Amino acid sequence: MNNKLEHEFFRLIKSDKHKAIQMVFEAYWNPLFKHAIKSVHCKCLAQDLVQDTFISLWDNLEILNFNKSVLAYLYAILKNKTLKFYEKDEVRSRYAISMASFGIASDSNTQNIIIEKELTLIINAEIEKMPKRMKEIYMLKKEDDLSIKQIASGLSLSEQTIKNQLQMAYQRLRTKIV
Rank of each mutant, 00 (worst) to 15 (best):
K129R: 15
K129I: 07
K129N: 15
M130T: 07
M130L: 14
P131W: 05
P131T: 02
P131G: 05
K132F: 15
R133F: 08
R133L: 13
M134V: 10
M134Q: 15
K135E: 09
E136A: 11
E136Y: 09
I137K: 04
I137N: 07
Y138D: 09
Y138A: 09
M139Y: 03
M139G: 04
M139A: 10
M139R: 14
M139L: 15
L140W: 02
K141L: 12
K141Y: 15
K141S: 15
E143V: 10
E143Q: 11
D144F: 06
D144W: 00
D144G: 00
D145V: 06
D145T: 12
D145I: 08
D145H: 13
S147Y: 07
I148Y: 04
I148L: 01
K149N: 12
Q150V: 01
Q150P: 02
I151L: 00
I151F: 07
I151A: 04
I151R: 02
I151D: 01
I151T: 03
A152E: 04
S153Q: 04
G154S: 09
G154F: 03
L155T: 01
L155N: 06
S156Q: 13
S156N: 12
S156V: 08
L157K: 02
S158E: 04
S158F: 00
S158T: 14
S158P: 02
E159T: 10
E159H: 01
E159K: 11
T161M: 02
T161C: 01
T161R: 03
T161L: 03
T161F: 08
I162M: 02
I162S: 03
K163C: 07
K163H: 08
N164W: 12
N164C: 13
N164R: 14
Q165F: 03
Q167I: 05
Q167Y: 10
M168R: 15
M168V: 12
A169F: 04
A169Q: 02
Y170V: 08
Y170F: 13
Q171T: 12
Q171L: 14
Q171D: 12
R172T: 09
R172W: 01
L173K: 04
L173H: 06
L173C: 07
L173G: 01
